[in-house]
């Protein structure tokens, strides 16, 4: 490998890690402020001076200073591994997201399946945390996570498959290249199913029954303190970034915009990611938590039939137009 080749790889990795560390913080700050204003508050105002922009940095410093507490009865190894298992998959997925024409850290031929597969590993982190904490709330949270994952994995994959059928490729860059604006209408149902099941996999409100801070403390995260807790929090926001990026790439045309695709590609993608992240926050503020029977009902009686219908529609349109 030449020096330029090595530099290229290093640069790509640094950019991905940088985005991985920065974007979740931006989404977190957006959540702080948007949620506050939706509730007629102003949110953090002091840290950093201007409208509390450094609040999450301050939070991070606070988390680092806090003590690591491991419950006596806990399974130490699994307990310590869980945050890494929850966080790292998102980093891997972020590397596969195309940000511009020909601009992607790692271009995988089966990129979509890679993303979905690795995302489902992340949920394993929550289950591990829930079991190893030796806490009944954590165990309940872990079980709820597992039940929710099982229900929402299927519509997620089916909705993704619909786009794959439409584009005729599994590669994320290929899907963006094949995307046409009228797919917004054609794949609308799949987009909704994908986004909603993604929210459920991330356990974001209104699907936050695994965490449910008002009934089971914080589910799998109950026993976590300090940096490990911060890693779980980072995983949650990194998950939002990844879900929004995937939705943008699959259904909204990724780096393609009304004009200047070649130069403005990354900006269009970022704009779409933050627009979707805003929707995630907006939905969180506006909807109450779903009960477990409502969760299962929504998944099996609404989302799965919807995605199957979308698959049929995609197939018919594909055959008719080809």
């Amino acid at each position: 490998m030449t020096v330029a080749g090595v530099l290229d790889v290093v640069l790509r990795l640094v950019l991905v890690v940088g985005a991985f560390l920065l974007l979740p913080l931006l989404v977190g700050q957006l959540e702080h402020k948007a949620m506050a204003h939706m509730q007629s508050r102003v949110g953090p105002m002091y840290a950093g001076g201007f409208h509390g922009w450094a609040q999450l940095v301050a939070d991070g410093v606070k988390f680092v200073q806090k003590e690591h507490v491991v419950p006596t009865a806990a399974d130490r190894t699994v307990f310590s591994l869980a945050p890494a298992v929850a966080l790292l998959p998102y980093l891997l997925v972020l590397a596969a997201v195309p940000v511009g024409p020909g601009l992607v850290a790692v271009d995988l031929p089966a990129g979509l399946f890679f993303a979905l597969a690795v995302l489902s590993v992340s949920v394993l982190g929550s289950i591990m945390a829930g079991w190893s904490s030796a806490n009944k709330y954590a165990l309940l949270g872990g079980m709820r996570t597992a039940a929710q994952l099982l229900a929402y994995e299927l519509p997620l994959v089916l909705a993704g498959s619909s786009v794959v059928m439409a584009a005729g490729t599994l590669s994320l860059s290929g899907i963006v290249l094949a995307w046409r604006p009228w797919w917004l209408v054609w794949q609308a149902a799949a987009a909704v199913v994908f986004f909603v099941s993604g929210l459920a996999e991330l356990a974001r409100p209104p699907f936050d029954m695994p965490l449910a801070d008002s009934e089971i403390v914080l589910g799998p995260l109950t026993e976590y303190t300090g940096l490990r807790f911060a890693l779980f929090m980072l995983a949650e926001y990194a998950g939002i970034v990844v879900l929004c990026a995937l939705t943008a790439v699959l259904f909204l045309g990724g780096w393609r915009g009304p004009f200047g695709d070649a130069s403005l590609g990354p900006i269009w993608l970022l704009a779409k990611i933050f627009l979707l992240a805003f929707v995630v926050i907006w939905v969180r503020v506006s909807t109450p938590r779903l009960r477990s029977d409502q969760l299962q009902r929504l998944a099996w009686l609404v989302l799965v039939p919807m995605s199957l219908g979308q698959l049929a529609l995609t197939g018919v349109v594909k055959v008719v137009t080809s």
Binding site: F113, S120, L149
Partner: peptide, 9 residues
């Protein structure tokens, strides 16, 4: 990837 998705996930 299908192995990871189906079996692990």
């Amino acid at each position: 990837w299908v192995q990871v998705l189906i079996y692990v996930g």
